[in-house]
Every structure is written in C-alpha cells, then in structure tokens.
Design a protein around this nucleic acid. Sequence first.
DNA 1: CTGAAAGCGCTTACAG
DNA 2: CTGAAAGCGCTTACAG
Lengths: 346, 346
Amino acid sequence: MTAPAARPRVTLADIATACDLSRATISLVLRGSPLVNAETRARVEAELKRQGYVYHRGAANLRRKVSSAVALVINDLSNPFFAEFAAGVDEALADAGYVTLLGSTGESVERQQAVLASLLEHDPAGVILSPAEGSDAARLRTLLGTRTPMLVFNRELGQDWDFLSLDNVRGARLATEHLIAQGHRRIAFFGGHQDSSSCRQRREGYRAALAAAGIALEPQWQIECAPTRLEAAGQTAALFVRDPAPTAAVCYNDAVALGLMAGLSSRGRRAGHDFAVTGFDDIPEASVSAPPLTTIAVDPRARGRQAAELILRRLHDPSTSPIATVAPARLLVRASSLVVLSGDAA
Amino acid sequence: MTAPAARPRVTLADIATACDLSRATISLVLRGSPLVNAETRARVEAELKRQGYVYHRGAANLRRKVSSAVALVINDLSNPFFAEFAAGVDEALADAGYVTLLGSTGESVERQQAVLASLLEHDPAGVILSPAEGSDAARLRTLLGTRTPMLVFNRELGQDWDFLSLDNVRGARLATEHLIAQGHRRIAFFGGHQDSSSCRQRREGYRAALAAAGIALEPQWQIECAPTRLEAAGQTAALFVRDPAPTAAVCYNDAVALGLMAGLSSRGRRAGHDFAVTGFDDIPEASVSAPPLTTIAVDPRARGRQAAELILRRLHDPSTSPIATVAPARLLVRASSLVVLSGDAA
DNA sequence: CTGAAAGCGCTTACAG
DNA sequence: CTGAAAGCGCTTACAG
C-alpha cells in the first residue's frame, strides 16, 4: 500500500468551487447528461482539463453499487496459448469499458485460492478462470459464494459455472481422420495423462475416428507421458517395442509432437518421411519446426474474446442457467503428417 | 457496467448488527488490531465466516486515500518474452499485496493512450509500461500528470520516469567475445535495423569487443534486415558476396539467428559445423533448434519481478530522482557457436 | 476495550 | 437547468 500522495488529488469539489457550481452539476457534465446548459458544460470541461482532473471510478462505482472490473485468473501465463487467451480477454473487456484484474497462479492450487481471494476484495463484477491443475471446485465455490458470476475456461470444474471449452473431441477426431485418409491404419495416441480431462477428450475423438473407420484400437499404442517436449522425446521408444509398429501418431499436443519428432530423428527416423505426426494447439513453433507440424488450431486470442463476451453476457443476465460453450477446432495440414506410405507400412 | 447485484452484499454493518457491536470494532478486528478483546474477536470472526463477508478494499482505500493496485501496460502480450515479463510482474505485485490492472496495447500508440486513460481512472498507485513502438513521451506525460509514478521497461522514453532496460551492450559484447575466444576473427553483425535503439546498443557491444581484441570492423559485414526469421534467411547470401567471407555472425536476436541458420543450410553450410552463430533473447525455440542456439538470456520473468520491485520502491520513496536500471545479460553457450575452425578459416 | 461522528470522491432522487 | 442532502462501505481520531 502507498503512503498518501504528496500532491492532493483534484476532485469534483475542486472543479465545482472553481466554476462556482455544485458538485452535482459537475457530475452531470462528467456523465454527459443532456440536462446541463451548453455554456456551463463548456466552462466545466475547460476547467476539468485545466486542473488535470481524473475521474475516480472506484468512488463512483461504490456509490452506484456497480463494478467495472473483471478478474482474469490464468494458470500459466508463460504458456503462449494462455498468454494469447489473456490478450484476447483484455482486448474485449477494454472495448466494453471494463478493466482486467490479472492474477496468475503458476498451476498452483494454493496460489489460485490466494490470488482469487485477493482479487475478490477488489469487487470484480465477474471472474474468468483458467483453472490450475487439480483445482477443487468446492473450495472455489466457498471463496466465490453465489454473488460473483464466473466463467471457467478449458478445464471443467462442475458446479453451476459457465464453461468455455475447446473442442478436444472433434479436434483429435479431425487429426485422426486426416491420418486415416492418408492411408494409415496403425495409429498411436501419444502423450498426455489419463487424469487430464482434455487428454481423455482427445483420446475419445481419436477412438471415435478409428471406430468409424473400422480400425481396432491397440492398447499398446496408447502411450502416456507428461505433456512436455522432453518427456515425449524420452517415450519415443515405447512406440517401437513390438512389430509391427505404428506408422503414425496423434499427439496430445504440439509440445509432445515436437518432442516425438526429436525422438524420431535420434532413432534415425524422420517425421513426414517415414512416420506421420500430428499435434494440437498450433503453438508458434509448430509452423517453423522441421518439418512443419500438422496440428489443430484453437485460436486462443479468439477464445479470449469469446470468454470476455460470455462473462459480460452473464453479468447482464444473471438468472439464466449455466451455459457450456464449445469452441471450434480447425485442422492445419502441414508436412509432418504427409508421408508416402510404403506398401509394407500400410 | 453491471446492474446492481440481486443478492445484497454483506457489509461491516451487517456483521456489527449480528454481533451487537459497532462498525468500528468490526473494522478493528478485520485489520487485526490488538485493541480488541480476544473473545470479541473470536465472535466477530465466526460471524464474518458465517455470513461469507468479503472485504471491500476499494471502499477502504477510498477512505484511507491509498491504492493497492498497479497498472501494467504491455505492448505485445502474445510475445512470450512479454508474457513472461507480465507473469513476473504479477507474481511480485501479488506477493506485495497489490493487484495488477492489466492493459495490452498490441503495439498501437492510440490504444496505449486509451488503455492507460482507462486504467488511471481506477486509481493505480503506479504504472509499469512496456511502451508500444513509436510512443510519444509528451502525450504520455499529459495523461499521467506528475502524481502517478511510472516505470518504463525496455524502450527508453526520456522524461523523468524510472527505466528498466536490458543490457544490450554487454550481451552483444559477451557473444562477440565468446566467438573471438573460439578463434574467430571474421565476425559479422547480422540483422536488426539501425533505427532501433536495442539494435544500436547491440552493435555497440559487438564493436567494443572487436576493438578490445584489436580486430578491425568490416563495414560490408554489418548486415541489416527486419528482425524476423524470414527476412534473415533471405539476407544470408549477403554474408558471402566477397572473399574472404566471415566465419561467424553475432545476430541481432534469436529469430534472426534461426533464419540465418536456415539460410546457411540451404546454401549447404551448417551452423555449428562450418559457421558459428549466436542469437539474443533465449526464446524457447533456441534450446531445441538444430543445432541448439548459443544466445544471450535476459530472463524476462526475473525482469518482471524486478520491475515490480522498482515501482514498489518508488511508491515508498517518491522524492528521489529517476532511476535507470540495467538488467544483467547471460551468455548461454550451445552448439551453434562451437565450430572447429580450419587453419584457413581462422 | 468499544462507540459516535465525520469523511474519502462520487451519484441520485428530490426540490426549486 | 442547478443545488442541498443523503449515502455507497469503509477508517480514524476522539471520547469514554
């Protein structure tokens, strides 16, 4: 907290005194009321500028019992996906006249509780939460109460909060169908953890595509690993323990896919030449890796704007029942999945 | 703005009534005053929990004439460098009990003015600004006045604001010295534009290292290009128009270095084998490119924490004169610069 | 140890 | 068209 400012703040009352008017009239000018005389208005506006008046929205909000802030709590701002999301949220909130109260949790549930508690003291009209892994919905509910609407992004939490999710099922299904269309029949699902809901959903899409094509799912080609490049590279060998090995892999996300591509090269194989790889997310590196990565784009900035719009709608309409929205996923075909299969491999 | 909440807010007065005490006493409990009787305190705390009271910091701040917010205005949140910076700022501000008011400008000067004006109405104790390209210091000064302290990051704006910059000179010097120590004498400076202050500073470090080693600077090896991968790849040929050609290049940044490496391979050369390359920034891709890129790390998250600490210090001590801080730069040696020179090349 | 009163910067009926 | 008065949720001397 700060010590009181040396220079005292310019206040409505100062302007009123200088113009020899009441505070009420100044307030009307500020809020653009048509009630005030044009000449009076001009005089007041000149004086506002002259004294460098800055509106104290907090005081106004207190009096009016409204809030012009929305809290945005992000699990991992150093992930470009969430950074883009945050940029989209902030953009749309600003356009609607709201200010963003930022909190980042670094995937820590404890920090998430602390950050949210602190932000709530600043009286946000609503909250947008991209939950930390392992978030406890009941604890969040206790913190939030029922007064503050929340939109949950990306990871489902249950409760009666609005929810914006990526279309994980459809995305993975698109990737898998693409590989099948290329002639692959032996397709692994590579990376991610079963206990993550997004991983479960992506596997579901993968399974659905296989099933629709009449391809049996091979349990030994369902390979779990932490969703990082390094872990993925380390797990590459698991794809090739048995013969025949898969000819393609749908990866949990781009990081995993890039790790797998590295793992492939250190085994003398090359993605896009003798093995097909797809990712998920379309991180910036995906377009410049060697080879460029076929992946699923979810446009995080657009998702951010969408999240902002959803919470704003909820603020205006608190009574309707919770809304679950699924954002579209788009297949981007690049070289990593374009393999000419030998007769043997297919 | 929101319509008034349906459920009325729980207030100090509600707790006071329920406990049959005055609001003053409740306030003392909230602020942890030792004046209040232990039994009374316990009773109050139970009631606070029971009613789900949440402190209205805005009201308290208004009364106390303090602020517990800091505005953070970022030019490009979709750049991982600035996203990390923002995460570091938020982390440190939260630890100090402040909340972050986020604004992103997308490198637009007009948006920067609008965003800042809006944030200032929320009465931040201070501002951290990573300026949009082409920012107008005088216009910013008009907006800010002299009441609100600001810390400027990365791009110098003049005025009497505190300033945190990266050590471009020292970073480029470290990279150049490293190449010299590897035996190189024909070292180019590749990429960036003369009109960017960071590019000028990096060239200055490069020149200083050459001068200290008694190596003459060759004007034809100072090659400008836009700081993107694509432009850099396209300019690669410019290094080899004359004989002898350089054996190494200090690149303006990592994007340029990665582009140069691509340009080299399409000419049948390989960074780290027959040509040495260094970058600047340590973007995530630098560690996973082929070969991994020797570069200068500036640790944006640590810079964010540092920025937060600097503005907090300024809040506590408004009178001291403006402070310019230069953040350290660290050389990360990786394979792209490790070339065994043939007798001829050296 | 607790309460009554004034006030932070604003807005909003209500008069005139 | 403008002003007087009350009040948003809190804190802070000042009494007692």
